[in-house]
Design a binder for these strands. Structure first.
Lengths: 172, 172
DNA sequence: GCCTCCATGTAATTGGTTACATGATTCT
DNA sequence: AGAATCATGTAACCAATTACATGGAGGC
């Protein structure tokens, strides 16, 4: 039900095809959520059947463009205001770090150093997004706010990985 | 295959029952992963069948205590060193924030204020855990490291939500 | 005796990934 | 002509949540 509503939200931004939606996930949302085309296409069919989106056009190679309906917009707004977001964040890499005591200290330090590098790279990516994004429309300002969340998260995790590496150095 | 290895890792720390494992998830790892008892018990049976853990004791009310085997420890170490962690973090609440432009500014502010309250509560929880946790064994120190990750994440997200709410106030 | 928590399990359903399958268009 | 990319869909499998189901032990 989450992905369903996220798709609705993306189509509220602008009409798109299933292919576009799947590319958007790949390119911009990979770190926050993932969705394969095999999950997206059936969901779009469901949304059409429920009257929340409709096919508004087509293109070459059987491309189908969908737009959100008034009913879809209403349902999306209700979801955003009337339901609580799920609070379980899944983060395998950080979870693994709680098992590093099983490895040789050198191996554990290697792992944490890779974490630092990863989070620093993500941080740079978000900084660039934040710097290059315009904030003229309401949708763009909201997107900027989401980018800021990623930025601060990566910053905190980078600092944490450094701290954890230091802990190993002083304890082991 | 992730949860399977995480369970192995927890049993590497000390022998435990399925109930203990499920409580451990609730108390220390809720922010990084979730696992219900209905998923844990069948996995424990699989691990026994594969020879990676064995039942080492029992207690009142049919309590079964499991310990890791040498084969289990080897498999766990191989997983930690030879496979890359998945990088897709799932975070519904942050994803939702990119759709707040669909709401009235007052509603969006409400959403973000609830985010502040939630993250502050979590932060207090982790601070208390961090203060009360012992760090005598290697496994306990590693758990402390995972708690620190949660603590820093919640701190960053609380500050972010405040910042985002302010942004809306000054822009809208 | 009653309530709460401890403790384990199974069944049904939903959500998500990987693999299978096909074909059109564009670029070189 | 051949390769890459665009574009859509289905099937099989694995992972995870929710609901169902049961019962013992300890505190009051």
């Amino acid at each position: 039900v989450i992905l369903r509503n996220i798709l609705l939200g993306m189509l509220a931004g602008r009409p798109m095809s299933g292919y576009d939606l799947s590319k958007l996930f790949e390119r911009f949302l990979e770190h926050l959520w993932s969705a394969r085309h095999s999950q997206i296409y059936p969901l779009l069919a469901d949304l059409v059947e429920d009257g929340l989106i409709r096919q508004s056009g087509s293109g070459p190679r059987g491309r189908k463009i969908y737009e959100i309906t008034d009913a879809g917009l209403a349902e999306l707004r209700a979801w955003l205001t009337e339901t609580e977001p799920g609070r379980t964040v899944r983060d395998e890499a950080t979870l693994r770090s709680s098992l590093l005591w099983l490895l040789e200290p050198a191996q554990a330090r290697d792992y944490l150093d890779r974490e630092v590098a990863y989070h620093d790279a993500q941080l740079a990516h978000y900084r660039q997004l934040a710097a290059s994004s315009t904030t003229t429309t309401a949708a763009e300002r909201a997107m900027r706010v989401a980018v800021e969340a990623g930025l601060r998260h990566e910053q905190a995790m980078s600092e944490w990985a450094r701290w954890a590496s230091d802990q190993l150095a002083t304890a082991g």
